[in-house]
Design a protein around this nucleic acid. Sequence first.
DNA 1: GTCTATAGTATGATAGAC
DNA 2: GTCTATCATACTATAGAC
Lengths: 180, 180
Amino acid sequence: MSKDDVVAKLSDVFRQYGYEGASLSKISVATGLSRASLYHYFPKGKEEMAATVLDHLYASLEINLLKPLQVKGNPLDKVRAMGKTLDLFYNGGCSSCFLDLLSIGESQPLFQSPIQQTLSAWIAALADVLVEAGQDVVVARCNAEDAIAQIEGTLVLSRCLGNNEPFKRAINNLPKILGL
Amino acid sequence: MSKDDVVAKLSDVFRQYGYEGASLSKISVATGLSRASLYHYFPKGKEEMAATVLDHLYASLEINLLKPLQVKGNPLDKVRAMGKTLDLFYNGGCSSCFLDLLSIGESQPLFQSPIQQTLSAWIAALADVLVEAGQDVVVARCNAEDAIAQIEGTLVLSRCLGNNEPFKRAINNLPKILGL
DNA sequence: GTCTATAGTATGATAGAC
DNA sequence: GTCTATCATACTATAGAC
Protein backbone atom coordinates (compact mmCIF):
# COMPACT_ATOMS: atom_id res chain seq x y z
CA MET A 1 0.00 0.00 0.00
CA SER A 2 1.40 3.39 -1.01
CA LYS A 3 1.60 6.30 1.38
CA ASP A 4 -1.11 8.10 -0.59
CA ASP A 5 -3.47 5.21 0.03
CA VAL A 6 -2.66 5.39 3.73
CA VAL A 7 -3.33 9.13 3.72
CA ALA A 8 -6.70 8.57 2.05
CA LYS A 9 -7.69 6.09 4.78
CA LEU A 10 -6.45 8.50 7.45
CA SER A 11 -8.59 11.25 5.99
CA ASP A 12 -11.69 9.07 6.28
CA VAL A 13 -11.02 8.31 9.94
CA PHE A 14 -10.25 11.93 10.87
CA ARG A 15 -13.32 13.34 9.20
CA GLN A 16 -15.55 10.78 10.86
CA TYR A 17 -14.14 10.91 14.40
CA GLY A 18 -12.23 14.19 14.60
CA TYR A 19 -8.66 14.46 15.80
CA GLU A 20 -9.10 13.28 19.37
CA GLY A 21 -11.65 10.62 18.49
CA ALA A 22 -9.38 9.16 15.81
CA SER A 23 -7.37 6.85 18.05
CA LEU A 24 -4.39 4.94 16.71
CA SER A 25 -6.43 1.78 17.24
CA LYS A 26 -9.14 3.04 14.85
CA ILE A 27 -6.51 4.26 12.42
CA SER A 28 -4.71 0.94 12.65
CA VAL A 29 -7.88 -0.98 11.80
CA ALA A 30 -8.83 1.39 8.98
CA THR A 31 -5.41 1.25 7.33
CA GLY A 32 -4.65 -2.38 8.08
CA LEU A 33 -1.30 -1.31 9.49
CA SER A 34 -0.04 -1.88 13.01
CA ARG A 35 0.62 1.07 15.27
CA ALA A 36 4.36 0.60 14.81
CA SER A 37 4.03 0.60 11.01
CA LEU A 38 2.14 3.86 11.18
CA TYR A 39 5.11 5.35 13.00
CA HIS A 40 7.32 4.26 10.14
CA TYR A 41 5.27 6.46 7.78
CA PHE A 42 4.73 9.23 10.33
CA PRO A 43 7.62 9.35 12.83
CA LYS A 44 6.07 12.26 14.72
CA GLY A 45 2.87 10.34 15.31
CA LYS A 46 -0.75 11.41 15.09
CA GLU A 47 -0.07 15.10 14.75
CA GLU A 48 2.03 14.42 11.66
CA MET A 49 -0.71 12.17 10.28
CA ALA A 50 -3.32 14.93 10.50
CA ALA A 51 -0.87 17.52 9.17
CA THR A 52 -0.11 15.29 6.19
CA VAL A 53 -3.80 14.80 5.47
CA LEU A 54 -4.23 18.58 5.60
CA ASP A 55 -1.37 19.00 3.13
CA HIS A 56 -2.90 16.49 0.74
CA LEU A 57 -6.30 18.14 1.12
CA TYR A 58 -4.87 21.51 0.18
CA ALA A 59 -3.12 20.01 -2.83
CA SER A 60 -6.33 18.29 -3.89
CA LEU A 61 -8.28 21.51 -3.37
CA GLU A 62 -5.91 23.42 -5.60
CA ILE A 63 -6.15 20.91 -8.42
CA ASN A 64 -9.83 20.02 -8.25
CA LEU A 65 -11.44 23.23 -7.02
CA LEU A 66 -9.23 26.31 -7.21
CA LYS A 67 -7.62 25.79 -10.63
CA PRO A 68 -10.95 25.07 -12.39
CA LEU A 69 -12.34 28.27 -10.84
CA GLN A 70 -9.35 30.29 -12.02
CA VAL A 71 -9.29 29.21 -15.66
CA LYS A 72 -10.97 31.45 -18.22
CA GLY A 73 -14.60 30.49 -18.65
CA ASN A 74 -18.24 31.22 -17.96
CA PRO A 75 -18.72 31.95 -14.20
CA LEU A 76 -22.01 30.07 -14.04
CA ASP A 77 -20.47 26.99 -15.65
CA LYS A 78 -17.53 27.12 -13.27
CA VAL A 79 -19.82 27.33 -10.25
CA ARG A 80 -21.86 24.39 -11.51
CA ALA A 81 -18.67 22.39 -12.00
CA MET A 82 -17.64 23.25 -8.44
CA GLY A 83 -20.96 21.87 -7.24
CA LYS A 84 -20.31 18.55 -8.91
CA THR A 85 -16.83 18.38 -7.40
CA LEU A 86 -18.21 19.14 -3.93
CA ASP A 87 -20.95 16.55 -4.29
CA LEU A 88 -18.27 14.00 -5.06
CA PHE A 89 -15.89 15.16 -2.36
CA TYR A 90 -18.52 15.13 0.39
CA ASN A 91 -20.02 11.88 -0.86
CA GLY A 92 -23.40 13.47 -1.59
CA GLY A 93 -23.46 15.09 1.84
CA CYS A 94 -22.84 11.87 3.73
CA SER A 95 -19.23 12.67 4.65
CA SER A 96 -18.28 15.48 6.96
CA CYS A 97 -15.82 18.25 6.24
CA PHE A 98 -12.27 17.51 7.34
CA LEU A 99 -11.60 21.19 8.12
CA ASP A 100 -14.71 21.32 10.29
CA LEU A 101 -13.71 18.33 12.39
CA LEU A 102 -10.09 19.39 12.81
CA SER A 103 -11.16 22.84 13.98
CA ILE A 104 -12.60 21.58 17.27
CA GLY A 105 -11.07 20.85 20.64
CA GLU A 106 -7.39 20.31 21.13
CA SER A 107 -6.68 20.03 17.42
CA GLN A 108 -7.87 23.59 16.79
CA PRO A 109 -4.71 25.35 18.00
CA LEU A 110 -2.53 22.71 16.31
CA PHE A 111 -3.95 23.22 12.83
CA GLN A 112 -5.56 26.66 13.03
CA SER A 113 -3.18 28.20 10.51
CA PRO A 114 -3.46 25.66 7.64
CA ILE A 115 -7.21 25.31 8.19
CA GLN A 116 -7.67 29.06 7.94
CA GLN A 117 -5.43 29.29 4.89
CA THR A 118 -7.21 26.47 3.10
CA LEU A 119 -10.67 27.85 3.71
CA SER A 120 -9.55 31.40 2.88
CA ALA A 121 -8.10 30.23 -0.42
CA TRP A 122 -11.40 28.63 -1.35
CA ILE A 123 -13.39 31.72 -0.40
CA ALA A 124 -11.03 34.00 -2.32
CA ALA A 125 -11.11 31.87 -5.47
CA LEU A 126 -14.89 31.75 -5.40
CA ALA A 127 -15.17 35.48 -4.79
CA ASP A 128 -12.88 36.14 -7.76
CA VAL A 129 -15.28 34.26 -10.02
CA LEU A 130 -18.13 36.45 -8.79
CA VAL A 131 -16.11 39.62 -9.42
CA GLU A 132 -15.42 38.22 -12.89
CA ALA A 133 -19.19 37.92 -13.26
CA GLY A 134 -19.53 41.63 -12.50
CA GLN A 135 -20.18 41.67 -8.76
CA ASP A 136 -18.77 44.30 -6.45
CA VAL A 137 -15.68 43.06 -4.59
CA VAL A 138 -17.24 43.32 -1.13
CA VAL A 139 -20.52 41.76 -2.23
CA ALA A 140 -18.65 38.93 -3.95
CA ARG A 141 -16.69 38.16 -0.82
CA CYS A 142 -19.90 38.01 1.25
CA ASN A 143 -21.64 35.80 -1.28
CA ALA A 144 -18.69 33.43 -1.39
CA GLU A 145 -18.58 33.19 2.41
CA ASP A 146 -22.33 32.66 2.62
CA ALA A 147 -22.30 29.91 0.00
CA ILE A 148 -19.49 28.02 1.68
CA ALA A 149 -21.22 28.46 5.04
CA GLN A 150 -24.34 26.98 3.44
CA ILE A 151 -22.34 23.95 2.29
CA GLU A 152 -20.74 23.48 5.70
CA GLY A 153 -24.06 23.98 7.46
CA THR A 154 -25.94 21.48 5.34
CA LEU A 155 -23.19 18.95 6.06
CA VAL A 156 -23.87 19.48 9.76
CA LEU A 157 -27.60 19.05 9.17
CA SER A 158 -26.93 15.91 7.18
CA ARG A 159 -25.03 14.48 10.13
CA CYS A 160 -27.62 15.52 12.71
CA LEU A 161 -30.76 14.64 10.76
CA GLY A 162 -29.50 11.69 8.76
CA ASN A 163 -30.87 13.42 5.71
CA ASN A 164 -28.75 14.81 2.87
CA GLU A 165 -31.52 16.65 1.03
CA PRO A 166 -30.50 20.06 2.39
CA PHE A 167 -26.99 19.43 1.07
CA LYS A 168 -28.27 18.38 -2.34
CA ARG A 169 -30.42 21.50 -2.46
CA ALA A 170 -27.48 23.69 -1.48
CA ILE A 171 -25.42 22.22 -4.32
CA ASN A 172 -28.22 22.78 -6.82
CA ASN A 173 -28.88 26.30 -5.55
CA LEU A 174 -25.22 27.37 -5.56
CA PRO A 175 -25.65 29.78 -8.49
CA LYS A 176 -28.64 31.41 -6.82
CA ILE A 177 -26.91 31.61 -3.42
CA LEU A 178 -23.94 33.24 -5.13
CA GLY A 179 -26.15 35.77 -6.90
CA LEU A 180 -25.55 34.41 -10.37
CA MET B 1 -22.96 24.76 43.34
CA SER B 2 -26.34 23.57 42.07
CA LYS B 3 -26.68 20.81 39.51
CA ASP B 4 -27.89 23.35 36.95
CA ASP B 5 -24.64 25.27 37.35
CA VAL B 6 -22.71 22.05 36.83
CA VAL B 7 -24.73 21.30 33.69
CA ALA B 8 -23.97 24.78 32.33
CA LYS B 9 -20.24 24.21 32.81
CA LEU B 10 -20.54 20.76 31.22
CA SER B 11 -22.23 22.28 28.20
CA ASP B 12 -19.33 24.67 27.70
CA VAL B 13 -16.77 21.86 27.78
CA PHE B 14 -18.74 19.58 25.45
CA ARG B 15 -19.34 22.23 22.85
CA GLN B 16 -15.70 23.22 22.84
CA TYR B 17 -14.10 19.76 22.79
CA GLY B 18 -16.83 17.41 21.62
CA TYR B 19 -17.81 14.25 23.45
CA GLU B 20 -14.57 12.31 23.14
CA GLY B 21 -12.38 15.36 23.62
CA ALA B 22 -14.22 16.34 26.79
CA SER B 23 -12.23 14.22 29.23
CA LEU B 24 -13.24 13.95 32.86
CA SER B 25 -10.04 15.83 33.70
CA LYS B 26 -11.16 18.82 31.62
CA ILE B 27 -14.66 18.56 33.03
CA SER B 28 -13.26 18.31 36.54
CA VAL B 29 -11.21 21.48 36.08
CA ALA B 30 -14.10 23.36 34.44
CA THR B 31 -16.59 22.49 37.16
CA GLY B 32 -14.19 22.60 40.09
CA LEU B 33 -15.42 19.18 41.15
CA SER B 34 -13.34 16.06 41.51
CA ARG B 35 -13.98 13.10 39.23
CA ALA B 36 -15.62 11.24 42.09
CA SER B 37 -17.96 14.15 42.81
CA LEU B 38 -19.02 14.20 39.20
CA TYR B 39 -20.06 10.57 39.59
CA HIS B 40 -22.21 11.59 42.51
CA TYR B 41 -24.22 13.87 40.20
CA PHE B 42 -24.03 11.53 37.21
CA PRO B 43 -23.75 7.89 38.37
CA LYS B 44 -23.65 6.59 34.81
CA GLY B 45 -20.66 8.76 33.99
CA LYS B 46 -19.87 10.82 30.93
CA GLU B 47 -22.69 9.49 28.80
CA GLU B 48 -25.20 10.61 31.42
CA MET B 49 -23.51 14.00 31.59
CA ALA B 50 -23.91 14.61 27.87
CA ALA B 51 -27.46 13.24 27.91
CA THR B 52 -28.35 15.61 30.75
CA VAL B 53 -26.88 18.57 28.89
CA LEU B 54 -28.95 17.55 25.85
CA ASP B 55 -32.08 17.42 28.01
CA HIS B 56 -31.39 20.87 29.42
CA LEU B 57 -30.66 22.18 25.96
CA TYR B 58 -33.99 20.95 24.66
CA ALA B 59 -35.79 22.50 27.62
CA SER B 60 -33.98 25.78 27.06
CA LEU B 61 -34.77 25.61 23.34
CA GLU B 62 -38.46 25.17 24.05
CA ILE B 63 -38.62 28.12 26.41
CA ASN B 64 -36.33 30.56 24.62
CA LEU B 65 -36.81 29.68 20.97
CA LEU B 66 -39.82 27.49 20.21
CA LYS B 67 -42.42 29.12 22.48
CA PRO B 68 -41.64 32.67 21.29
CA LEU B 69 -42.02 31.44 17.71
CA GLN B 70 -45.36 29.82 18.47
CA VAL B 71 -47.08 32.72 20.20
CA LYS B 72 -49.34 34.93 18.13
CA GLY B 73 -47.45 37.79 16.56
CA ASN B 74 -45.82 39.30 13.53
CA PRO B 75 -43.64 36.68 11.74
CA LEU B 76 -40.91 39.19 10.93
CA ASP B 77 -40.72 40.34 14.55
CA LYS B 78 -40.57 36.77 15.77
CA VAL B 79 -37.72 35.94 13.39
CA ARG B 80 -35.79 39.01 14.52
CA ALA B 81 -36.30 38.00 18.12
CA MET B 82 -34.99 34.54 17.29
CA GLY B 83 -31.89 36.15 15.83
CA LYS B 84 -31.20 37.99 19.07
CA THR B 85 -31.67 34.79 21.07
CA LEU B 86 -29.28 32.91 18.79
CA ASP B 87 -26.69 35.68 18.95
CA LEU B 88 -26.78 35.36 22.73
CA PHE B 89 -26.81 31.58 22.74
CA TYR B 90 -23.85 31.24 20.39
CA ASN B 91 -21.97 34.07 22.06
CA GLY B 92 -21.93 36.19 18.91
CA GLY B 93 -20.71 33.25 16.85
CA CYS B 94 -17.74 32.51 19.12
CA SER B 95 -19.25 29.36 20.65
CA SER B 96 -19.92 26.23 18.66
CA CYS B 97 -23.19 24.37 18.44
CA PHE B 98 -23.59 21.62 20.98
CA LEU B 99 -25.65 19.50 18.58
CA ASP B 100 -22.96 19.82 15.94
CA LEU B 101 -20.18 18.61 18.23
CA LEU B 102 -22.20 15.75 19.69
CA SER B 103 -23.09 14.49 16.23
CA ILE B 104 -19.54 13.41 15.40
CA GLY B 105 -17.59 10.25 16.09
CA GLU B 106 -18.54 7.78 18.75
CA SER B 107 -21.10 10.12 20.32
CA GLN B 108 -23.18 10.19 17.14
CA PRO B 109 -24.89 6.81 17.62
CA LEU B 110 -25.31 7.51 21.34
CA PHE B 111 -27.26 10.73 20.92
CA GLN B 112 -28.55 10.52 17.36
CA SER B 113 -32.17 10.39 18.39
CA PRO B 114 -32.34 13.40 20.76
CA ILE B 115 -30.12 15.44 18.44
CA GLN B 116 -32.41 14.74 15.51
CA GLN B 117 -35.52 15.49 17.55
CA THR B 118 -34.13 18.75 18.88
CA LEU B 119 -33.06 20.02 15.48
CA SER B 120 -36.30 18.85 13.86
CA ALA B 121 -38.35 20.69 16.46
CA TRP B 122 -36.49 23.90 15.70
CA ILE B 123 -36.92 23.49 11.95
CA ALA B 124 -40.63 22.71 12.31
CA ALA B 125 -41.30 25.69 14.57
CA LEU B 126 -39.50 28.02 12.21
CA ALA B 127 -41.30 26.60 9.17
CA ASP B 128 -44.65 27.12 10.92
CA VAL B 129 -43.88 30.81 11.28
CA LEU B 130 -43.20 31.02 7.56
CA VAL B 131 -46.45 29.25 6.73
CA GLU B 132 -48.14 31.74 9.04
CA ALA B 133 -46.52 34.45 6.90
CA GLY B 134 -48.17 32.97 3.82
CA GLN B 135 -45.47 30.66 2.46
CA ASP B 136 -46.25 27.31 0.89
CA VAL B 137 -45.65 24.43 3.32
CA VAL B 138 -42.89 22.82 1.27
CA VAL B 139 -41.17 26.13 0.56
CA ALA B 140 -41.37 27.09 4.22
CA ARG B 141 -39.72 23.85 5.26
CA CYS B 142 -36.87 24.38 2.79
CA ASN B 143 -36.36 27.98 3.88
CA ALA B 144 -36.27 26.96 7.53
CA GLU B 145 -33.71 24.24 6.84
CA ASP B 146 -31.59 26.57 4.74
CA ALA B 147 -31.59 29.29 7.39
CA ILE B 148 -30.58 26.91 10.16
CA ALA B 149 -27.90 25.45 7.90
CA GLN B 150 -26.64 28.97 7.34
CA ILE B 151 -26.40 29.52 11.10
CA GLU B 152 -24.60 26.21 11.62
CA GLY B 153 -22.30 26.83 8.68
CA THR B 154 -21.29 30.31 9.78
CA LEU B 155 -20.49 28.87 13.21
CA VAL B 156 -18.11 26.45 11.46
CA LEU B 157 -16.57 29.32 9.51
CA SER B 158 -16.22 31.30 12.71
CA ARG B 159 -14.25 28.45 14.24
CA CYS B 160 -12.09 27.88 11.17
CA LEU B 161 -11.40 31.49 10.25
CA GLY B 162 -11.41 33.07 13.71
CA ASN B 163 -13.87 35.60 12.33
CA ASN B 164 -17.49 35.89 13.39
CA GLU B 165 -18.62 38.35 10.74
CA PRO B 166 -20.30 35.67 8.59
CA PHE B 167 -22.31 34.66 11.65
CA LYS B 168 -23.30 38.23 12.43
CA ARG B 169 -24.37 38.69 8.82
CA ALA B 170 -26.41 35.49 8.89
CA ILE B 171 -28.23 36.70 12.00
CA ASN B 172 -28.96 40.08 10.39
CA ASN B 173 -30.03 38.48 7.11
CA LEU B 174 -32.32 35.90 8.71
CA PRO B 175 -35.52 37.53 7.43
CA LYS B 176 -34.12 37.69 3.90
CA ILE B 177 -32.80 34.10 4.03
CA LEU B 178 -36.23 32.98 5.21
CA GLY B 179 -37.98 34.82 2.38
CA LEU B 180 -39.68 37.39 4.61
C1' DG C 1 -21.69 15.87 49.12
C1' DT C 2 -16.83 15.98 48.59
C1' DC C 3 -12.68 14.01 48.77
C1' DT C 4 -8.15 10.61 48.17
C1' DA C 5 -6.76 6.41 46.42
C1' DT C 6 -6.94 3.11 43.09
C1' DA C 7 -8.57 -0.39 39.82
C1' DG C 8 -8.74 -1.66 34.98
C1' DT C 9 -8.39 -0.25 30.43
C1' DA C 10 -7.03 2.47 26.39
C1' DT C 11 -4.08 5.79 24.77
C1' DG C 12 0.24 7.62 22.12
C1' DA C 13 4.72 6.30 21.39
C1' DT C 14 9.34 3.21 21.24
C1' DA C 15 12.52 -0.66 21.04
C1' DG C 16 14.09 -4.20 18.65
C1' DA C 17 13.41 -8.77 15.99
C1' DC C 18 12.80 -10.29 11.24
C1' DG D 1 8.70 -2.08 5.82
C1' DT D 2 6.13 -4.81 9.02
C1' DC D 3 5.64 -6.92 13.05
C1' DT D 4 5.29 -8.26 18.55
C1' DA D 5 6.20 -6.61 22.92
C1' DT D 6 6.41 -3.00 25.91
C1' DC D 7 6.65 1.71 28.26
C1' DA D 8 4.61 5.65 30.48
C1' DT D 9 0.70 8.11 30.65
C1' DA D 10 -4.24 9.34 30.51
C1' DC D 11 -8.59 7.64 30.50
C1' DT D 12 -13.31 6.16 32.66
C1' DA D 13 -15.02 4.40 36.62
C1' DT D 14 -15.31 2.63 41.56
C1' DA D 15 -14.41 2.01 46.59
C1' DG D 16 -14.44 3.86 50.80
C1' DA D 17 -13.03 7.60 54.31
C1' DC D 18 -14.87 11.84 56.24
